[in-house]
Design a binder for these strands. Sequence first.
DNA 1: TTGAAAGCGCTAACAC
DNA 2: GTGTTAGCGCTTTCAA
Lengths: 332, 332
Amino acid sequence: MNNRKVTIKDIAKYAKVSTATVSNVVNGKTGKISEETRIKVLKVIEKHNYIPNRIASSLVTKKTKTLGLIIPDISNPFFPEIARGAEDKANKAGYNVIVCNTDNSVKKEEEYLSMLKEKMIEGIIMTASENKEDNTDFYKKISLPIVLVDRDLNIDNVRGRILVDNFMGAYKGVSHMINRGYKKIVMISSSTKDNTSSRRIAGYEKALEDHKIDFKVVLEGVYSLEWGKEAIKKIIDSNIEFDGVFCGNDLIAIGAMDVLKDNKMGIPKDVGILGFDDIYLGEITSPKLTTIKQPNYMMGYKAAEILIDSIERNEKYKEIILDTEIVIRESV
Amino acid sequence: MNNRKVTIKDIAKYAKVSTATVSNVVNGKTGKISEETRIKVLKVIEKHNYIPNRIASSLVTKKTKTLGLIIPDISNPFFPEIARGAEDKANKAGYNVIVCNTDNSVKKEEEYLSMLKEKMIEGIIMTASENKEDNTDFYKKISLPIVLVDRDLNIDNVRGRILVDNFMGAYKGVSHMINRGYKKIVMISSSTKDNTSSRRIAGYEKALEDHKIDFKVVLEGVYSLEWGKEAIKKIIDSNIEFDGVFCGNDLIAIGAMDVLKDNKMGIPKDVGILGFDDIYLGEITSPKLTTIKQPNYMMGYKAAEILIDSIERNEKYKEIILDTEIVIRESV
DNA sequence: TTGAAAGCGCTAACAC
DNA sequence: GTGTTAGCGCTTTCAA
């Protein structure tokens, strides 16, 4: 077994054909190749264990069949399903995906974008950093096809957006709570700088308004378990009377539930809890979490689909607003 | 703004230097370049928004600065932290990582391996498929540096292994249960075909033996919530008397706990539950799950570290056995 | 249907 | 310190 990698030239030589012919059979350009030579070349390829070098072909075709997935943190339970959906669609279409964790840092986001651009990645699926400043110029410079997931962002060359109807989701959820008899519903949210949060808050407010409820409390923080705990403690300490908590996401809800239980408050009897996202954990808490379901897998899948359609067929900008669904379990 | 991408040649021309000089400044080969020309070239690069094409340089250097991460399923809560650890180390060293989901299919595993090889990925971090047949030949043909995480596999060109001391983990955990007074501990495991499971079962058995306990029941299934529910139902239905359950992983434990609670059995009073892995959810269940902690993030991080050291400095085979740690919460 | 040859954008000798 | 140039492994005209 010689160590030097066997190249298309070697195969051409051994099979006594030209490199062009080998290239055609490798890439399945049938119709240009007689069955006879095709078989012959294939045999030689098999025999010598030839593995085509896609870096070399990428250099001439300008296609790498690789996508970038830029998210805050794959270990945040919100993202694995999105990643899986995206990877599934990508794989089906013959693409690979490079995963990048930004921790919501604009700097890291830009670094990744540069790396990916240099590696001639063909497109990006991104959940943009929350702390968005105007790095619009940067995106313009990079000029890669982008599909945005879950977050909005005003930049060029965006080929599509996958959004979730956060307003309606919150509206439906809070209305459900009200219909169940909860009257004093506080909301523990993430920061309003984040568009997603704003929409959920707006839905909450509209639901209260439509049901003629005056009581309204919104605490702003971040999407984390810890913030859920901290916020609910603040509320308890402040002696506000409340009988329901609408949480900006499930993580917050689970954190809040935990503290509530420690304080011997009955869920859903004394306090109703509503989450948002429907992450895996919600099914497992006790009581099980009632929540607004985000179709995460589908978000990733559709994002990849739009991106690939845009890359391969230059399809025009497409926006998909996926509906949420209320998952009624035990906490409301 | 002209559309054609600006290349190293353009920069060389504009800056009135050679391409070699541009290449040297781009790659920070200081000491070969006078500060004066360096500045000059940098200015031209900036002005024309030059982005080097790493595909072209990869073709000549044979380095892509890209790693593959092959796992069963990123949406299985066990893997995101591993992925994050691996990506963090990779990023620090200037690498990107391509994530591949195999669903434990040997066929998909091979397909990914081929794609990655063609793309000249420099190394692989892999949790091998459970259903391993002898596709040893395939790995040999591919001949990529591989670091194995959590699973054993007898193949060539493995540059390292990250293992967890499953035997000792199980031993410590079960001993802890016994010391707390549990006498009839059943084990709900995954399949013994999987090496990880075998070690955990062995640890369970050894602990019983060392404490002179005769009672021993092991149910084999898969690592899932559903199997946990199913298995505990079987045990309950069979009227076996038991006061403790050692679960092959946390998912199983959480499933089992759920059914136990539905059956009004007190945890940890009537039945003690011990998990394995310490996934995020365990902190959130009620009661909180006592479990054996797998250092997942570190597993990913160390895997990437070994792989990169092997690639860059040709360091020799290295095996790391990470210790588990018993996380005492409320379920035992 | 096949082959010859140019060239994708870059790096690395080697020469100056 | 800097420039010249061959060549990485492939695709793609164009000609035969």
